[in-house]
Nucleic acid binder design. Structure first.
Length: 487
RNA sequence: GGCCUCAUCGUCUAACGGUUAGGACACAGGAUUCUCAUUCCUGUAAUCGGGGUUCGAUUCCCCGUGAGGCUGCCA
């Protein structure tokens, strides 16, 4: 199947659009088809510089390489590839004009000279009369000769679609099923603006046809304009593609997911440290399910399992809690060495010693099952690279049944135990054995001993386990930290 | 207002018209454990309302109600 993603470069890539793009990409991969990236830049006023680069960056991050269309080349420059180009609408303006002329000639469109002011007034009146605001077709009644005269005089005008009002436009949406719209409820959409630029509706239809797109996957917000597109396809005598409208992503209050109520830019999620595996996994599960109880999917599994039939119709609230859970799951799946390589640069920024740390892999392993986001790593490993100072407040912990009075005694026992281990035999097993031995003769609880050990070594309320930290820290350093408490 | 769409635990969702309405996240409790986290176990929690159709409706139909989208010379 030939699918496409057709964003307009008017700002950041919305997370909902990323999901829509993903669905389109999945369908292309699943069917050994083609996924095209087309840039819909017909609105000059809203164009934002750098938006295309940003969209491309996000898609690349997510692992979605366009098969054709706009994409970065090996050097990172933005290029167009494919036999159906150009893929940037602003480069196709002549094309739209040609097709618009054809509609005009065939009587499927007409010129409209109404000013924005008049239209505004018209709408206000209609609203007052509780009518649907729609173009009243004033200019459709114009005498052809007069139209020619005004055009020749260079009067500003637009081209409108002449909607067949007596028809019913019906089609079968791949997700919503059979849908129909009465022609008289469809507005005479502007096709060509007065500056000669096409609107979305014209450009979209022309391009989907010329690019031979056979499956259009887009957001539910387009459902209402689908009849306009279908009318256009019919007017041109073209076979329309299949449409699959994807339910919207929602705010917790069930309105359309928007800024204000949290992050919606895909780049925000990248910045936060989400893994592409996690974000895409989560996005796929919003509005779609495999029909099994599987929740964790690799991209490959998704390509295999994904079907439009199992996308359901209602909007889905974007639940950050579940995203974070999936994120954690994927963090834990990363091979240990990869995980270490990944966080090392981050840790190094804060603690330069990490750069040449031969024990970095071991340290990284300790935090991998505790971490949710990579940027947390430096803080979680900080106690390895600084000489922190423990406070009595931390060490004397009622919950661990360690009172302030106990501390000197426990510290003494710990020091003795550590000192009893030979420098050359400093392993976790040796430490466990030594602590166990000390424990037996002390009459203390294991928790009392280990809490003090761990707190003294890390100076943190929570951290990886005492034995593991002690082992990696080494005998000398462990002893130093125990002595440093000096209480 | 008009057009279109949607409706199962708080959230994401499952259930050929027949299930004690299932799973996951979150929450609560417990187990493991030196803390935190992980892992494991248990629990609380849902078919929007009213009518039909049917021996039997979460499921099909109708009417409400609620929610959303669209209603631009934006996309």
């Amino acid at each position: 199947m030939r699918t496409r993603f057709a964003p307009s470069p008017t700002g950041f890539l919305h997370i909902g659009n990323l999901r829509t793009a993903f669905f389109a990409w999945l369908m292309a991969r699943k069917t050994n088809g083609s996924f095209a990236l087309r840039i819909e830049d017909t609105d000059r006023a809203r164009e934002v510089t750098g938006a295309v680069e940003s969209i491309l960056r996000v898609l690349a991050w997510a692992g979605m390489k366009p098969d054709e269309g706009v994409m970065p080349d090996d050097a990172g420059n933005i290029v167009e590839k494919g036999s159906h180009g150009p893929y940037i609408q602003s480069k196709r303006f002549d094309l739209y004009r040609t097709y618009a002329d054809q509609l005009l000639k065939d009587g499927h469109a007409y010129r409209c000279f109404c000013t924005p002011e008049r239209l505004d007034e018209m709408r206000k009146k209609q609203e007052k009369l509780r009518q649907a605001p729609m173009y009243d077709r004033t200019c459709l009644e114009l005498d052809p000769a007069e139209v020619e005269k005004r055009v020749a005089a260079g009067e500003k005008h637009v081209l409108r679609l002449k909607v067949p009002r007596e028809e019913t436009i019906a089609y079968e949406d791949k997700i919503y099923g059979p849908l129909s719209f009465k022609g008289h409820t469809v507005d005479d959409q502007v096709l060509l603006k007065s500056d000669g630029f096409p609107t979305y509706h014209l450009a979209n239809v022309v391009d989907d046809h010329l690019m031979e797109i056979d499956l259009v996957i887009r957001g539910e917000e387009w459902l209402s304009s689908t009849p306009k597109h279908l009318i256009l396809f019919k007017a041109f005598g073209w076979r329309p593609p299949q449409y699959a409208h994807v339910p919207l992503l929602l705010n917790p209050d069930r309105s359309k997911l928007s800024k204000r109520q949290g992050d919606v830019a895909a780049e925000d999620f990248i910045k936060k440290g989400y893994l592409p595996e996690a974000l895409m996994n989560f996005l796929a599960l919003l509005g779609w399910n495999p029909g099994t109880e599987q929740e964790l999917f690799t991209i490959t599994e998704l390509i295999e399992s994904f079907t439009l039939e199992r996308i359901h119709k209602s909007g889905a609230v974007f639940d950050l809690k579940k995203l974070d859970w999936i994120q954690g799951q994927w963090m834990r799946k990363i091979p240990a060495q990869d995980f270490a390589d990944r966080i090392r640069p981050l840790v190094t920024v804060k603690y330069p010693d990490a750069a040449n740390d031969s024990k970095f892999l071991q340290k990284a392993a300790l935090i991998q099952e505790r971490i949710t986001f990579f940027p947390e790593a430096p803080d979680m490993l900080g106690f390895f690279y600084t000489e922190p100072t423990a406070t009595m407040e931390l060490i004397a912990n009622p919950k661990q049944k360690v009172t302030e009075a106990d501390v000197p005694k426990i510290l003494g026992i710990l020091k003795t135990a550590v000192e009893s281990i030979d420098e050359k035999k400093w392993t976790k097993d040796a430490i466990v054995t030594a602590i166990d031995a000390a424990l037996a003769s002390s009459g203390l609880k294991k928790g009392q001993l280990l809490w003090v050990l761990r707190a003294s070594l890390t100076c943190r309320a929570y951290s990886p386990g005492a034995y593991e930290v002690a082992e990696i820290l080494g005998r000398e350093k462990a002893l130093l930290r125990l002595k440093k408490i000096g209480i």
